[in-house]
Design a protein around this nucleic acid. Structure first.
Length: 847
DNA sequence: GCAAGGTC
């Protein structure tokens, strides 16, 4: 007779085989997967480990086209269960064919029962031999043997409870996710998925609730009356602080009144002294949640990473299985040999030795989920051993935490001596207290808990003490702090969101969706997450709270308990989801507009080229919008906010971040290379402040009058003119990119120019002034003077001169790239430029 | 493409 057993995972299969086979086990390969063959009680046994679930639900193909199926339809469709691990399915069938009996030997919990049923379903496709269940609450020899000696019937109800969960989770997740994602996409262009689920959403909800509390917090003033006393013993540490018994006084008058009564006090009386010994027990053994919380709190390691490290430590044989709800050691746990092992390891030796001198009594918790023992070390190892075996930098410290936690569990309580002094100052009561660690106990091995002494000088009852200072300090109540990841895990655990193994995943999912982010140990909600939660809590409030999970959990628990048929639970669960879906649909606009707004805001903020600023009308984001019919500045709050501003029809637009409009313009844009445009106002050259905003950048003093020379650029020529319109002009190189520098010529004081000609020619920096020795050097160079020289004394015609009265030059500072200033001509000047150049030519001709 | 649950 051949009996085939299926365990939840390979490690468990190997363990079962080695227990039952008593060392005589042959490892074989089935469809490329490991299995174990041995003889037990005269029978031929084959045990194979699965890989958790090897099947999963999904909607039939035709329902997976998001744009063709109304998401609500999914609620009326039955998802199908499909094999997701074909290799395992093939191996199961192959082994089942050989079997005279099949034993399901997965973990002892709801999912384990369900995983067993996956193997059962697949087996039944190829055989009809009896299928039984071995139920063990740990992989200890005693438990495993007992389970295999007393096989029972598989628990259909338990497996179907998990089945109902799978279907309801999928229906809800898929329908809601698609609905919200597609609705938001109608209003905002995004490829992102906005997911919703019975675990991830309440997880985000916890962070949302905290954020709301922080945002709505209103600080209140309070007063605190404190005194610095002095024992006057002449020793160091004589001073100690006392607080008036009224504590935080929220009434200013009352505080002032008390403080008045204390006025002039020079001494206080120690009316009462109480010394109390308190004991602090070691923490409970680590289950997964507690482990993840401590890894985050003490080591700053994210739950996701901590679980990964623990997994690797487990696979490398250093620590026990990391996914457990149990925080209680089994009665027959062999502490002694493990502690002996630690006594040989330098870092842990003193603690191990202290444990071994007395009978070992572990500190235990109360949860025994009959799954796996608490997370504990399997053997003592050094940092070096760990880091060479597990290639994750955090592995040694995670191992150290698990090892020290284990040892601490076996050590005595820490003893503190707490002293409380009751003092009287002019009949007003003050309190002062101190704590001293008397016996460190388990804290010796556990440096993560940092308990600092607070010392008090030695004083006796009835003794008088001096007063060095009395103060009445005003403070403000502080807002709630952001959640830490450890606190979030606690909330999830308390509210039964997710399981031991999935809590980190739910946090990760929220991060991946852009709902949450972590900074160090704290976790905060991002705008998308906040608006989504806000929208949901206004339309389907239950979704944001842990009740949603609780409701589904209650339903499937009834299935597990045999109080409700599977079909009935599915119908009820689906009805609940349909009801929520209807609420969501009815409030589609309210729900999606704010989310869409946020998404658009975020995208607009990212889009540096088009970002303009904040909309004064609604607080959303203004950006340049380009459509087929033209361009304008619009608000991401559209269509609710219709705030918009026109833009010039042509010319490349550059937002000048360093420029601020002195009027009401939202931002200043550079249009082509021509002029500037204040959003909300229009072209700067029509603004009376233009000269103030864009003063002509002068080159140096005019040699003919007390004006200054500035660069005038036209389409086909450029030269220097005088701000006083005295008629003096001066030539500049006609070709190449000309930039006015901040440097000045040491000889004449004119600013230097930089010229970059087309092609490979090097940049030149020079003085342009022909009346300066420096400048003449430049013009004398071959190819500079002859062709480019224009008549220096050419005077501007009247019309040209008058055009110069208008602001003709504006500067656009490219502050990001160079301190230099580029000079450009405004259209006003351009309009006149024909006249001006004509006049110029005339002058030329004249001479 | 969607959830949550196993496991690696």
């Amino acid at each position: 007779m051949t009996i085939v057993a299926f365990a939840e995972k390979n490690k468990a299969a190997a363990q079962i085989a080695s227990i039952l086979g008593e060392g005589e086990v042959e490892k074989i390969t089935v469809e490329g997967l490991p299995a174990y063959e041995f003889k037990w009680k005269g029978e031929e046994w084959l045990v194979m480990g699965l890989s958790g679930h090897i099947m999963n639900y999904d909607f039939p193909e035709q329902y997976n086209k998001w744009n063709e199926v109304n998401p609500g339809v999914l609620l009326g469709v039955d998802p199908q269960k499909l094999v997701t691990r074909a290799d395992y399915a093939a191996a199961v069938k192959k082994l089942a064919k050989r079997a005279n009996k099949i034993v399901l030997a997965c973990d002892y919990d709801r999912e384990g029962e369900n995983i067993g049923f996956e193997a059962k379903t697949l087996s039944e496709e190829v055989t009809n031999v009896p299928i039984e269940r071995a139920r063990f609450s740990s992989l200890s020899p005693k438990e495993v043997k007992k389970a295999f000696e007393s096989l029972i019937d598989p628990d259909y109800n338990m497996a179907m409870a998990a089945e109902a969960r799978q279907i309801l989770d999928l229906k809800m997740g898929a329908a809601f996710t698609r609905f919200v994602t597609l609705s938001v996409r109608e209003r905002a262009r995004t490829k992102d998925i906005l997911s919703i689920g019975p675990c991830q959403t309440p997880t985000c909800g916890f962070v949302y609730e905290r954020e709301k509390a922080i945002r709505s917090f209103q600080a209140k003033d309070f007063w605190k009356i404190t005194a610095i006393f002095s024992a006057e013993s002449g020793k160091e540490g004589d001073d100690f602080e006392g607080t008036h018994r009224a504590g935080n006084i929220h009434d200013k008058e009352k505080a002032a009144e008390i403080f008045k009564r204390l006025k002039g006090a020079k001494e206080g009386l120690v009316a009462k002294k109480a010394v109390k010994e308190t004991k602090t027990s070691p923490p409970n053994p680590l289950n997964t949640t507690e482990f993840l919380k401590r890894a985050s709190k003490f080591l700053g390691i994210s739950p996701e990473l901590a679980l990964e490290v623990a997994e690797q430590l487990y696979l490398a044989g250093f620590t026990s299985y990391p996914r457990t709800e149990t925080n209680k050691y089994a009665d027959d746990f062999d502490f002694k040999s493990l502690v002996f092992d630690f006594a040989r390891q330098k870092e842990y030796k003193p603690f191990a030795e202290s444990i071994l001198i007395a009978p070992i009594i572990p500190k235990n918790g109360e949860k025994d989920a009959h799954d796996h023992p608490p997370i504990h070390p399997i053997r003592a190892a050094s940092r070096g051993e760990i880091s060479s075996a597990v290639n994750i930098p955090q592995a040694p410290e995670v191992y150290d935490l698990i090892a020290r936690h284990f040892l601490a569990n076996l050590m005595p309580a820490a003893v503190f001596e707490k002293t409380h002094l009751h003092l009287l100052v002019q009949e007003e009561p003050f309190d002062s207290s101190g704590t001293v660690l008397k016996d460190s106990g388990w804290l010796e091995a556990y440096p993560f808990e940092n308990k600092k002494d607070k010392l008090l000088p030695f004083v006796e009852e009835g003794q008088k003490v001096g007063i060095k200072k009395l103060s009445n300090t005003k403070s403000k109540t502080s807002p709630p702090k952001k959640l830490t990841e450890a606190e979030l895990l606690t909330l999830m655990d308390k509210n039964r969101i997710g399981t031991k193994a999935t809590a980190p995943t739910h946090i990760e999912t929220n991060k991946k969706r852009g709902y949450l982010e972590t900074k160090g140990k704290t976790i905060s909600i991002l705008d998308t997450g906040f608006t989504l939660m806000e929208g949901l809590s206004l339309t389907v409030p239950i979704l944001v709270r842990p009740e949603i999970r609780a409701k589904i959990e209650a339903l499937i628990q009834e299935v597990e308990d045999g109080k409700k048929e599977f079909e009935a639970a599915l119908d009820e669960g689906t009805a609940l989801i349909k009801e929520m879906y209807a609420q969501l649909e009815a409030n589609k606009k309210d729900l999606t507009s704010s989310i869409a707004g946020t998404i658009k805001d975020e995208a607009a903020l990212e889009d540096k080229k088009n970002y303009i600023g904040t909309c004064k009308a609604c607080g959303h984001v203004l950006r340049i919008v380009q459509t087929d019919s033209g361009r304008f500045v619009g608000c991401t709050g559209y269509p609710d906010c219709r705030n918009s501003y026109p833009l010039p029809k042509s010319g490349a637009l550059t937002v000048l971040r360093s420029k601020e409009c002195k009027k009401e313009g939202v931002a200043v844009l550079k249009v082509g290379n021509k002029y500037n445009w204040a959003v909300g106002i229009g072209p700067c050259f029509t603004c009376d402040l233009e000269k103030e905003c864009y003063p002509p950048e002068t080159v140096g003093p005019c040699p003919e009058c007390d004006g200054s020379m500035f660069l005038i650029t036209f389409k086909d020529t450029r030269f220097l003119g005088c701000t006083k319109r005295c008629g003096y002009t001066h030539s500049v190189p006609k070709t190449g990119k000309l930039t006015l520098l901040d440097k000045t010529c040491e000889t004449c004081g004119w600013k230097l120019f930089r010229l970059k000609e087309e092609g490979d020619s090097p940049e030149e920096e020079f003085c342009v002034n022909r009346r300066c020795a420096e400048g003449r050097k430049y013009w004398k160079k071959p190819g500079k003077g002859a062709e480019t020289r224009i008549k220096e004394k050419a005077s501007l015609s009247r019309s040209a001169a008058s055009s110069a009265e208008n602001p003709t030059v504006s500067s656009a500072t490219n502050s990001a790239t160079s301190p230099a200033t580029r000079l450009t001509v405004t259209p006003t000047a351009e309009k006149n430029s024909k006249v001006l150049t004509a006049g110029l030519k005339k002058n030329k001709e004249k001479t």
